[in-house]
Amino acid sequence: GSMEQGFLPKGWEVRHAPNGRPFFIDHNTKTTTWEDPRLKIPA
């Protein structure tokens, strides 16, 4: 929902695949990933 959306880094969006699995869109680089960007520790 909109709650989890608010925690994503700037430029990211979460969508759900037809099977219900969430995936993440990085509008900054125009890419998608199954990995939650929030789980990655910034270098």
Rank of each mutant, 00 (worst) to 15 (best):
G1N: 11
G1Y: 09
G1S: 12
S2E: 11
S2Y: 13
S2L: 12
S2F: 13
S2P: 12
S2G: 14
S2C: 10
M3T: 11
M3N: 11
M3H: 11
M3Q: 13
M3R: 12
E4D: 13
E4A: 14
E4F: 12
E4V: 13
E4S: 13
E4G: 13
Q5A: 11
Q5N: 13
Q5I: 14
Q5P: 11
Q5M: 14
G6A: 11
G6V: 12
G6H: 11
G6R: 09
G6F: 10
G6D: 12
G6K: 10
G6I: 09
G6S: 12
F7D: 15
F7G: 15
F7W: 14
L8R: 01
L8T: 02
L8S: 02
L8Q: 01
L8P: 02
P9T: 03
P9V: 05
P9R: 03
P9L: 07
P9A: 04
P9Y: 05
P9I: 05
P9K: 04
K10M: 12
K10N: 11
K10S: 13
K10T: 14
G11D: 05
G11H: 04
G11F: 02
G11K: 01
W12K: 00
W12S: 01
W12Q: 02
W12H: 02
W12G: 01
W12L: 01
E13Q: 03
E13H: 01
E13R: 00
E13D: 03
E13S: 05
E13M: 00
V14H: 05
V14D: 02
V14F: 03
V14P: 00
V14Y: 02
V14I: 15
R15K: 11
R15V: 10
R15T: 07
R15I: 11
R15H: 08
R15S: 08
R15E: 06
H16A: 07
H16L: 15
H16M: 15
H16N: 08
H16F: 15
H16V: 15
H16Q: 10
H16P: 05
H16R: 12
H16I: 15
A17L: 10
A17Q: 07
A17K: 06
A17S: 09
A17C: 10
A17F: 06
P18R: 08
P18H: 08
P18V: 09
P18W: 09
P18L: 08
P18Q: 09
P18M: 08
N19Y: 02
N19M: 02
N19E: 04
N19T: 05
N19V: 01
N19I: 00
G20C: 09
G20Q: 04
G20T: 07
G20S: 05
G20V: 01
G20A: 02
G20Y: 00
R21Q: 09
R21M: 10
R21Y: 07
R21G: 04
R21F: 07
P22L: 09
P22A: 07
P22T: 07
P22V: 11
P22E: 09
P22M: 07
P22G: 03
P22R: 06
F23M: 08
F23H: 05
F23L: 09
F23V: 08
F23K: 04
F24S: 00
F24N: 00
F24Q: 00
F24R: 00
F24K: 00
I25E: 04
I25H: 04
I25Y: 13
I25M: 05
I25W: 06
I25Q: 03
I25S: 04
D26N: 10
D26Q: 01
D26M: 00
D26P: 00
H27I: 07
H27Q: 06
H27K: 06
H27M: 08
H27Y: 07
H27W: 13
H27S: 07
N28R: 04
N28G: 04
N28H: 06
N28L: 07
N28Y: 06
N28W: 05
N28E: 06
N28D: 05
N28T: 08
N28Q: 06
T29V: 03
T29M: 05
T29S: 08
T29N: 09
T29Y: 04
T29D: 03
T29K: 06
T29W: 02
T29P: 00
T29A: 05
T29H: 06
K30H: 15
K30L: 08
K30Q: 14
K30Y: 07
K30D: 12
K30V: 05
T31D: 04
T31M: 08
T31N: 06
T31Q: 08
T32L: 15
T32Q: 12
T32F: 13
T32K: 10
T32H: 07
T33Q: 08
T33P: 00
T33L: 03
T33K: 02
T33I: 06
T33D: 01
T33E: 02
T33F: 06
T33W: 08
W34H: 04
W34S: 04
W34P: 02
W34C: 06
W34L: 07
W34M: 05
E35S: 07
E35M: 09
E35R: 09
E35C: 09
E35V: 10
E35W: 09
E35N: 09
E35P: 00
E35I: 10
D36T: 00
D36N: 02
D36K: 01
D36P: 07
D36V: 00
P37W: 00
P37L: 01
P37Q: 02
P37G: 02
P37C: 09
P37S: 01
R38W: 06
R38D: 04
R38L: 03
R38F: 06
R38I: 03
R38M: 06
L39T: 13
L39Y: 11
L39D: 12
L39N: 14
L39G: 14
L39R: 07
L39H: 13
L39A: 13
K40D: 11
K40N: 14
K40G: 13
K40Q: 14
K40C: 14
K40T: 14
K40L: 14
I41L: 15
I41M: 12
I41Q: 14
I41K: 11
P42Q: 12
P42M: 09
P42N: 12
P42I: 10
P42K: 09
A43I: 12
A43N: 13
A43W: 10
A43K: 10
A43R: 08
